[in-house]
Design a protein around this nucleic acid. Sequence first.
DNA 1: ATGCAGAAATTGGTTGGACCATTGAGCCAT
DNA 2: ATGGCTCAATGGTCCAACCAATTTCTGCAT
Lengths: 244, 244
Amino acid sequence: MTEFGLSPIQATARDDAVLKALAGFVMREALGPGQRLPTERILAERLKVSRNTVREALTRWEGLGLVERRQGSGTYLKGVVSLDMLHMPLTLAGGNDFTSLMQTLEIRRALEAEAAALCAIRADQAEIAEIARKLDIMEQAFHTRAGMSAEEDWEFHQSIYRSSGNPLFEQIIAAMHELFHRFWEHPLGVRDFGHASFPYHRTIYERIAAHDPEGARAEALKLIATVEDDLKRGAAKLELSGQK
Amino acid sequence: MTEFGLSPIQATARDDAVLKALAGFVMREALGPGQRLPTERILAERLKVSRNTVREALTRWEGLGLVERRQGSGTYLKGVVSLDMLHMPLTLAGGNDFTSLMQTLEIRRALEAEAAALCAIRADQAEIAEIARKLDIMEQAFHTRAGMSAEEDWEFHQSIYRSSGNPLFEQIIAAMHELFHRFWEHPLGVRDFGHASFPYHRTIYERIAAHDPEGARAEALKLIATVEDDLKRGAAKLELSGQK
DNA sequence: ATGCAGAAATTGGTTGGACCATTGAGCCAT
DNA sequence: ATGGCTCAATGGTCCAACCAATTTCTGCAT
């Protein structure tokens, strides 16, 4: 194990100090997403605080999505960490009913369209190629597995958000995506979900590749519209079958 | 101390289970902001988990701004808690620079335009009247106080979000607004900030009152564009004066 | 009785040490 | 090579204290 450039902490407000020290360490070592950071035991020893304090600090970062813990393996960076970060935790009440889903879709419509337009403006050749790659993977999965391509679908969209030049798009939409997953994992019997949206993935890509922001925005809006339709169909079915 | 309706927890993923149980407890007891919740020691005893686990769970909620801890006093609710909450922690890397501000503005542009459009579709007469009232107040404040109408300006926008039929708009934009305030409270020497955007408030209102969603969207976009220009001017000034 | 200072109880914050559960790497027999 | 096994490393949980800030109670002086 190498020598970590970490020095002890002093007064109260330990866990904040721990996070500050850790952020500094991450910056000095130029650690990025995916990389492992020191074990809790080592951090506790180097910073001269108890392991519990280190754990509370890391729990904070985990809650902010900055870090991921894997038991038996280690703690890994999930995002970019810097000393001067601003946190904006949003908690939205409501969640699992049809209305809430439609409301999040309205937000997503706004963001998805804007992200696609920005991407069409800003994406360079490498980024466009990456999007094309994700699109190919998705289309291939769609055909071989008869429409079960949710994971690949999501990765395609993510590649667009990443190329929008604004990381907030991915952060916000990712949170909503999680909500959607939780919702139609087991309930809601719309099997062909997403089929209708399939063709628009390619049209979005084409508008982005052509650096046509308004075209990309329009295609993104069409895609979301099909999802909304699917959702309404699913809700209607639930209504009929008498469920709540 | 009353009898808490809390039952033991079972398997792994303790802290999540703790939060679920706590959320259920808060709902059953109909606890609201400002009220104190049970001691960590009591929670640990009732839920049959260690106090450490309770603390990690509460640390999560504290990070989300749902709860506030006061040493020697207790843990108090800060927001509304329910079982089906969606958490959306956003992190702005390097929070106080020009880039971060522009990024939040891009998000706001997307949401503001969509909210204005939805409002034009859905707002009823009473809501339109309320928006008109806020607009009058704002314009009057603008003229009497020579442009210092930030508070009234914000209330005008809020009234639009509220009439969009989707509470998420207000929640998300409000979080960003708070962030903005913290930023240009003292730094950034653009005095005439917001002057350029003034006329568009009335045009937005007129398009909403006319139930013209695309018109409202277009005017909202113009307004945000003026804010972006102001921001760029401010950044250019900082650049000139040699600050970082 | 009243008011206030000091003691005591309450409560979140921290510590250190122990053990469990999962992971991953190295080893060994096949 | 391959498959299974062992074992060390690592995060997850627990316990039992003690510290620090706050609140509440107590009792004395007025």
